[in-house]
Nucleic acid binder design. Structure first.
Length: 114
DNA sequence: ACAGTGACAAGTC
DNA sequence: AGACTTGCCACTG
């Protein structure tokens, strides 16, 4: 991993704030992490998320609710399984953001920006 | 240096 | 609802 560790940590930390049973998007996480416009970086960094940090990478989806992985792929199935375990309904590789999208409260937001 | 490629997103048509 | 375009930026060859 040759990407900026500083940014990576902010992203991992932000993703860890997403509660079980809820999902968020790459772009939203990028914004919260103080990296607006860098949704792609979030995905790039998540695949290197250290195991011991137990980052809930699977709660991050595309902004339209679609899983980022190709439908039917091994990764997509794994992600789907992990989400369903938390009660998130996934059908035809997508989730209803209306229903499961995470909308952080003030308290949660304050924990992030120093 | 440079073009292509991504776990993306928002705007236009 | 799609399809296409543009903006992102780190990584790779």
């Amino acid at each position: 991993m040759a990407f900026n560790l500083h940014n990576a940590q902010k992203i991992w930390k932000t993703v860890s704030k997403v509660p079980a049973g809820k999902v968020s998007s790459y772009g939203f996480v990028a914004d919260l992490a103080g990296l607006p416009g860098r949704a792609r970086l979030v995905g790039a960094v998540l695949q290197y998320a250290p195991q011991e940090m137990s980052v809930p990478w699977f709660r991050i989806l595309k902004s339209n609710g679609q899983l980022a992985f190709q439908a039917g792929s091994k990764k997509a199935e794994l992600q789907t399984g992990l989400l369903q375990e938390e009660g998130v309904v996934v059908m035809s590789n997508r989730v209803k953001m209306k229903q499961f999208g995470w909308t952080p409260g003030l308290g949660e937001l304050m924990e992030l920006e120093y």
